[in-house]
């Protein structure tokens, strides 16, 4: 043991230094990239904690002299969007109001469609699935005007049920796809056994399949929470004045407000809007990546 070690030491030395140089290069690259990726978040955060005179001194990267949370309070409750001065809190609650029912309805719809497509073949099921998948790729611009007309006819345009329905419709492709894929991996004996035991259409779904769906439900929740929270266009068009989501309100505060710009308030509002998906991201960990992989299947 000692012999081999002593004889091999000289020959090992050289490759070792080469490897460590390589290692250094690898870590250097990763660290520089990390700084690039963290930069905007860092700048948004420190700007939100500065006072306006400090911001005007022009060092965007400098650490705030004192931590000042006035901008956060203002961003949350009194920042102006042109006419109203109620901060992003209104948008936050609107987004919550939109998110919770949309989440529930869109996931349940996708689960049911996936369930029917997996176990209850019907005439035209393939075509139905094809149309739904095509729906994932249609640019919103090619749908929006007729949809506005249809929604207006039913009195849904610019209402909360309207925007919930819109999120359900645009969530349908991806939700149906992931649930269909998930259910088709389950052994079909489960379904058959439940049927033999006398469970009906809803019985199988609610008592047998749904309890087994936890992993895919988590993926669906992550996809939909980030997707619906980050939506801008649909909320802008279908939400109406009463239900303007946080992203729209944020954009109004930053880009259309009159008078002198208060960058610290703008950045505090930006950070507040980013917080919900960021929390989802950090707490979901690997599930988030699974969600991406599931979403990527559509491509």
């Amino acid at each position: 043991m000692t012999m081999t070690q002593s004889t091999s030491t000289p020959s090992l030395k050289k490759p070792r230094t080469i490897i460590s140089k390589e290692r250094i290069a690898i870590y250097l690259f990763l660290i520089i990239c990390s700084l690039f990726f963290l930069l905007p978040l860092y700048i948004v955060l420190i700007t939100s904690l500065k006072t306006m005179p400090e911001i005007r001194m022009g060092n965007i990267m400098s650490w705030p002299e004192t931590w000042n949370t006035d901008a956060w309070v203002k961003a949350w409750s009194t920042a102006c969007t042109g006419l109203q001065c109620e901060g992003v809190s209104v948008g936050f609650w609107n987004s919550i109001k939109i998110l919770i029912p949309s989440l529930f309805v869109s996931i349940l719809s996708g689960a049911i469609c996936g369930y029917v497509l997996s176990y209850w073949r019907f005439k035209g099921a393939e075509l139905f699935f094809g149309i739904i998948l095509f729906g994932a790729f249609i640019p919103y611009q090619a749908l929006i005007y007729p949809m506005i007309k249809i929604f207006a006819t039913f009195g849904l345009y610019g209402t909360l049920p309207g925007i919930i329905l819109v999120h359900t419709i645009f969530g349908l492709p991806i939700m149906t796809l992931i649930f269909r894929n998930y259910y088709s991996t389950l052994p079909s004996e489960i379904f058959k056994a439940a049927r033999v035991d006398g469970a009906g259409f809803f019985g199988v779904f609610f008592h047998v399949l749904l309890p087994m769906s936890t992993p895919i439900l988590i993926v669906a929740v992550i996809l939909q929470v980030t997707g619906i929270w980050n939506d801008f266009l649909l909320g802008l068009i279908f939400g109406g004045r009463e239900n303007m989501p946080m992203t729209v309100q944020l954009n109004n505060i930053v880009n259309t407000a009159r008078g002198a710009k208060e960058y610290n308030v703008n950045m505090a509002a930006t950070f507040l809007t980013a917080m919900v998906p960021l929390l989802v991201y950090f707490f979901s960990g690997r599930w988030f990546v699974r969600g991406i992989a599931a979403g990527a299947v559509k491509g």
Partner: peptide, 20 residues
């Protein structure tokens, strides 16, 4: 670190870079 921007909306992304 590399994936977190993907959780952010394009609005937040745009405003952060606009500021920088």
């Amino acid at each position: 670190v590399f994936l977190y921007p993907h959780a952010l909306s394009f609005v937040v992304t745009g405003l952060a870079w606009q500021w920088f």
